[in-house]
């Protein structure tokens, strides 16, 4: 009788420790996902801040491309206001498309391409776009790991007990479409 009781308590203790371990792992993952998301946010904000500078720099050179520039500004303003993972992804896709069109047009302005100010802005924008890409990649990796943990046995029991929610992926439209905007004649 005594031995059985002790064994029961030991078993309970082991289970409690095990549940705590899984719970902590889930919390750590969830925080990593949050952290990764804030990284994306930082980079998106940085791009939103860079775009007015870019427009200001190129305005003098590209007076005939008012529409392209206005499109960028519009897309940028919409992206600044967007909230939620899915909405933001949609707004950023639109902004990417507007910028892609702009990069195509830039090829026609050799003066602009020689402008030091523009070149350094372009490096900044390129890098910021890369950073968005890499932080998205990092965020999606972390989100995938959290989601796997939430779905897989045995951690799904603990996740269900404490109501862990799956993280949304941050997906932009695929890169090929973004690089070559459709041109219709």
């Amino acid at each position: 009788m005594g031995i059985a009781l002790v064994a029961l308590f030991v078993l309970l203790g082991v289970i409690v420790v095990w549940v705590i371990g899984i719970f902590n792992g889930l919390v750590r993952l969830r925080n990593q996902v949050k952290n990764a998301w804030s990284q994306i946010d930082v980079q998106l904000k940085r791009r939103h801040d860079l775009i007015p500078n870019l427009i200001e720099t190129v305005k003098g050179y590209m007076s005939h491309e008012r529409e392209t520039l206005e499109n960028i500004t519009k897309a940028r303003n919409l992206a600044v206001q967007a909230s939620g993972v899915a909405n933001q992804a949609q707004a950023e896709t639109n902004l990417n498309r507007a910028l892609g069109q702009f990069y195509l047009v830039v090829e026609n302005y050799p003066d602009l391409k020689a402008n030091q100010n523009f070149l350094s802005l372009q490096e900044e924008l390129t890098s910021t776009e890369n950073k968005i890409g890499f932080s998205r990649q990092h965020y999606n990796d972390q989100a995938m790991r959290l989601n796997n943990k939430i779905e897989m046995f045995p951690s799904n029991i603990v996740a269900g007990m404490f109501n862990f929610k799956q993280a949304e992926f941050f997906e932009l439209e695929d890169e090929a479409e973004r690089a070559v905007p459709k041109v219709s004649f």
């Binding site: 980079q43 350094s120 890098s127």
Partner: peptide, 13 residues
């Protein structure tokens, strides 16, 4: 700037 940006990109990745 380019080197520094590349390091930042990889830090994020």
């Amino acid at each position: 700037p380019q080197l520094y940006n590349v390091v930042e990109e990889m830090t994020i990745a």
